[in-house]
Design a protein around this nucleic acid. Sequence first.
DNA 1: ATCCAGGGGG
DNA 2: CCCCCCGGAT
Length: 223
Amino acid sequence: MYKSPNKQTIRFIRNGLIGWGKKNYRKFPWRHTKSKFHALIAEILLQRTKADQVLPVYKVFTAKYKTPYSLSKARLAEIKKAIKSLGLLWRAGLIKKLAVVLSRGKSIACDYHELLKLPAVGPYVASAFSSFHCNKFRSIIDSNVVRLYGRLFGVKTGPETRRSKFMYDLANLMTPQKAFKAYNYAVLDHTAAICVSKPRCEICPIKKECRYYFRRGGYYGKK
DNA sequence: ATCCAGGGGG
DNA sequence: CCCCCCGGAT
């Protein structure tokens, strides 16, 4: 039975994740690029794709296409070839459309609802971009976040949970208003290293507040 | 066989 | 709600 987390629990989880993050944040070029264009491209390449796998593609891609205009002029086959190793090749067409739209504008919007209008940009990419690269409060929801909160609070999740109002409200509740960026990065990195599909609960900094760890009255690892 | 920084379309 | 996209790592 789901119970909404109280303030102490929320604080513990936030501090646990951010504290862990400070020692374990991954470094990726798109986390500190000055190019909002490249940052946005990165978020799109990261859709359903592991970050480590995106890295080499991102490097080649950003070296080749430095501006929306240069990308808008690229042939579709060329873009497909560049992102081929990532699969989901229909993204190539959307990326090209995106470049055409962006090359007409002066700069990339930072407003969530404006971002949503862009090709290949959905709730996750718009949230991640405005949080990480516009310094605006936004909670992020991806498959990892769904798994994390599902385990922490002992709720059933499915393929469509990521779009549910329940998860949206929960993510907004958990994400701190000020340290949202540190928290969001910590969540991404923690769910990629600790709270993976076969979780490494022994070394999880927030296991004390995790329903999954304490499931069935015992704790994870001791059955 | 399963999973991955989801989006688009029905 | 449902399904598809999809290559690559584990």
